[in-house]
């Protein structure tokens, strides 16, 4: 499986007086097992990009393809799964099981097969199917409901998983849980995470695309981003705190010999650099 977006452009209301250019010249590709992180401030075009990648709307320019075949809404058929922001608001069925089963049954899966995929999906989000399956989705905590909603998408066994701000509104434990789940889902699919919160996902990203006003201001690996974090500013994003602390430390004359995302490593380098400076 390989998802490719080539030179994507999108204009809302094209040809009208209120046309808005939302995306311009965005390219990315994703293989199974990879995580691509799309970073951008509010209004940068990242949600538009996600809708296009999900086949929900065709790009005005450029091409979206899976394994070389053009993607369109009529043929997506569960290959691409999109988890919206605050997905727990989409739960509707009487039990968790029925909710998670809804997607695969709609795709024409047999009852038996769907039941199996429901169990797998709940296990993948760290919820015991026997304990949580019969419960009402409305009696769950916010974090649990969030995970059930993710399971609902997983149950369709998509090859590509797209997440829009997967940690928004969650407390620290909920964030850690969802971040860990997203990381583990790479075993089943290629994953795209769109967020303004670089901190949670930067450490696991294989490729990073940073958008500002619909244009890519950075495309590359984590190492390349760490070598020159100035693009955060260009994209109107705050540098993640651990990285920012290192930049400020260097400004104070403490030599670190490069930036890292690892907290322990950063502390080591700062303590060493501080000792060397005195």
């Amino acid at each position: 499986m390989r998802l490719t977006l080539e030179d994507i452009g999108y204009t809302y209301g094209e040809g009208t007086s209120f046309a808005v250019r939302a995306l311009d010249g965005v390219t990315l590709s994703l293989d199974r097992g990879e995580l691509v992180l799309v970073l951008g401030a509010t209004g940068s075009g990242k949600s538009t990009l996600l809708r296009i990648a999900a086949g929900l709307m065709p790009p005005t320019e450029g091409r979206v393809a899976i394994d070389g075949n053009a993607l369109d809404a009529s043929r997506v058929g569960g290959r691409v799964g999109l988890v919206f922001q605050n997905p727990q608001t989409q739960l509707f069925a009487e039990t968790v099981e029925a909710d998670v089963e809804f997607g695969p049954r709609n795709l024409g899966m047999s009852e038996e097969e769907a039941r199996g995929t429901v169990r797998e999906a709940l296990e993948a989000v760290d919820l015991d199917p026997d304990e949580f399956g019969p419960r009402s989705p409305f009696a769950l905590s916010g974090g649990e409901a969030h995970r059930v909603a993710i399971a609902g998408v997983l149950a369709m066994r998509p090859e590509v998983l797209l997440f829009d701000e997967p940690t928004a509104g969650l407390d620290a434990w909920g964030r850690d849980a969802v971040t860990g789940i997203v990381a583990s889902l790479r075993a089943h699919a290629g994953v795209v995470v769109v967020t303004h919160d670089a901190e949670g996902f930067l450490g696991m990203a294989d490729h990073i695309v940073m958008l500002a006003d619909g244009r890519p201001v950075f495309t590359g690996s984590r190492e390349e981003l760490l070598a020159d974090p100035s693009c955060f500013e260009q994209a109107g994003l705050r540098v993640p705190d651990v990285l920012r602390t290192q930049i400020l430390a260097e400004e104070r004359g403490i030599r670190l010999g490069g930036y890292t995302l690892e907290v322990v490593e950063a502390a080591d380098r700062m303590a060493r650099g501080r000792g060397a400076g005195r």
Binding site: W173, V242, V263, A267
Partner: peptide
């Protein structure tokens, strides 16, 4: 309490354990 230290708080804790 179920509230985790944010990454910068963990960094501060690591620095304290190194005598800063």
């Amino acid at each position: 309490l179920g509230v985790a230290l944010p990454p910068v708080g963990r960094l501060a804790a690591e620095l304290r354990s190194r005598g800063v």
